[in-house]
Design a protein around this nucleic acid. Structure first.
Lengths: 344, 344
DNA sequence: TGTTAGCACTCTCTCTTAATGAGTGCTAAT
DNA sequence: ATTAGCACTCATTAAGAGAGAGTGCTAACA
């Protein structure tokens, strides 16, 4: 069957109406609200066609139509037009980024708040990809006579640390020497390309303090571990309650529990490497539990190098047009901000 | 009116039944389940008395009774008996603490998980009180030619950091010198007793780099700021959904939003300084929004010095007996663990 | 041939009503 | 002082009746 201009118009009208109301859309509504100059009866015929083609669904015989995931996909790919942010929104965002900050984590956290505030959906933002971050300083600081703290400072100002037990009789000098070696080995190296081999070699040649070196290797491994979940920032988790389809307490709980699984969210977002905005609709989701949701992601970069991802999770009847614009804008704004901050 | 032995027995039976079922309790139930050898009619008379005294309430004329906050208070103060944790539970907890860790934050986080898991309520745990933590090391590390990272390492292994801009032409040597001064000034000082005066004095005598010193003072202030909310760990926020009285989506949302206000939670827990376990029931809560909840807190210490607080938030019909025991146990266990870790 | 008015039909949602049942308070007997 | 008996209250549930929204089909129309 052909997918003529008029069918597209009707599909668009149905989708947009359903997105705003959440109620199945009938032929009369389309004829009245989005008057294209044809009668409800004609629209009914077209709707039957669209359903047959898989773009619409009918909850039950005597109800209006709702878009299918396939319908949304068509809508996103062909019918949507970019929407500008309002001046208020743009200013609101800029104001927040204009404030100086001493912690990059705070910037990321703010980003998740802004996103969830503006879109009214749930926002997930990943911190800078650790694999492409540079080590600027490593140091072992004695805390008491039993523990030292290993600190790894990166060029984004993020500190990774770990406590390690130190053998008796080991003094500050010794720790300083080790620190110097570590700096010599790793400074200005990518976190992703750090090799522990030289350290392991050293350990194997040692007679004393092997235990200590083991801890050290472990601690460094842990510190540079890229899959760390602490770098997932959430915003607006309770926004989901605003939508009638999630008034059901069970569904809501399921969703919230999902959002607590940081590893899953991490994987979900880390996957999308393509620059720019990408949209995943309902069934297209890899993750079983998210088949009822749509996800829109965007990446941000520093100096043109992709550093992280941000995402919006909402019901499939999401305001795609608006949300895509917001994500696009935010990706660019955050990239600019960070690039300016770390311009070298 | 007298509060005789029998009235107490009946009150106890009603409260315990209501805690487990969540349904108003009738006279027949008491007679059958908790047979004290008297008839429902007699129990009804006693119940009427207890209501008059303010220990019970009636949702509507033809319903059973439910305990009032005052009733719970009496129950907690006079009727409860300590309950031992099951061996399984005790082992479960010990197992978790037996694992070595490199981050004290992780221990605190684990604690909140354990608490919420075992009790099935929402757990809040505050990290070590920063005011009684010692500074072990301060350092300025250059990140690039525009920024340095200020790091404050404490004896609990917690690192506070902040990025500060550095003036052009300032070299590593200069930063090292400043670091030395900072260490000289602050090492082994309590975070709570740190004074910025010497630093401000220094700044005022300077001609160059005043701007830089300003940033430095700000950054240190921020780093040692005790009221920092990042130290609030939550566990089991969605547990509230398990209780029929919070099936209402609005109430649930309200609760979750409350739990996102870390400052409020911080204040709530930081208030309870008394050692050991303390119970706050419904209306007794200072905080308006928590009038429907009960809160049980316990403190933990290092070497006998109170360092932090943990709390459980649940419905007023909470399993007080069980929960109080758990809190008592956990407070002691965590204290032991930390004391062993930082024994000097 | 495409469009439209008319109409019977379907299904959900809401409102009403009646029945059920748990629980009480009071009275009178033990 | 305790208890059996009983009338009364109130929430909850189920069933039934409309109302209303929307459809698909048919036949008439341009």
């Amino acid at each position: 069957m052909e997918l003529g201009e008029r069918k597209l118009q009707i599909l668009q009208a149905i989708i947009e109406d359903y997105i705003t109301t959440g109620e199945p859309v009938g032929s009369r509504t389309i004829a009245k609200k989005y008057g294209i100059g044809i009668s409800p009866a004609t629209i009914r015929n077209e709707m039957a066609d669209l359903e047959e083609m898989g773009y619409l669904e009918q909850p039950h015989t005597s109800a209006g139509r709702i878009p299918s995931d396939r319908g949304y996909r068509l809508y996103v790919d062909r019918l949507i037009k970019a929407e500008r942010l309002s001046i208020n929104e743009a200013n609101y965002i800029k104001d927040i980024y204009d404030k100086k900050t001493r912690h990059i984590e705070q910037v990321i956290f703010q980003t998740s708040k802004i996103l969830s505030d503006i879109t009214n959906y749930t926002a997930v933002v990943l911190g800078p990809k650790l694999s492409s971050v540079l080590v600027k300083h490593i140091q072992l600081v004695p805390i008491d006579n039993r523990f030292a703290l290993l600190m790894v400072v990166t060029n984004t100002g993020i500190v990774r640390d770990a406590m390690i037990p130190i053998p008796q009789g080991v003094g500050v000098d010794y720790l300083t020497r080790i620190s110097n070696i570590l700096n010599y080995l790793y400074r200005d190296k990518n976190l992703g390309e750090i090799s522990l081999d030289p350290l392991i070699e050293m350990r194997d040649e040692m007679i004393q303090n092997r235990e200590f070196f083991n801890s050290l290797v472990d601690a460094i491994t842990e510190s540079i571990d890229i899959g760390d979940i602490s770098e997932v920032y959430l915003g607006g988790t309770t926004n989901i309650f605003n939508y009638p389809e999630y008034q059901d307490i069970l569904k809501a709980k399921e969703f919230l529990n999902l959002m607590e699984q940081k590893e899953l969210l991490y994987k979900l977002l880390a996957r999308s490497h393509d620059k720019g905005v990408s949209v995943t609709i309902g069934e297209e989701n890899q993750c079983e539990e998210l088949r009822d949701f749509s996800i829109i992601t965007a990446t941000y970069n520093i100096n043109g190098k992709t550093m992280g991802t941000m995402g919006i999770i909402g019901p499939t009847r999401m305001e795609y047009s608006k949300t895509i614009s917001v994500m696009d804008f935010m990706g660019k704004t955050l990239s600019n901000y960070l690039t300016r901050l770390f311009k070298s």
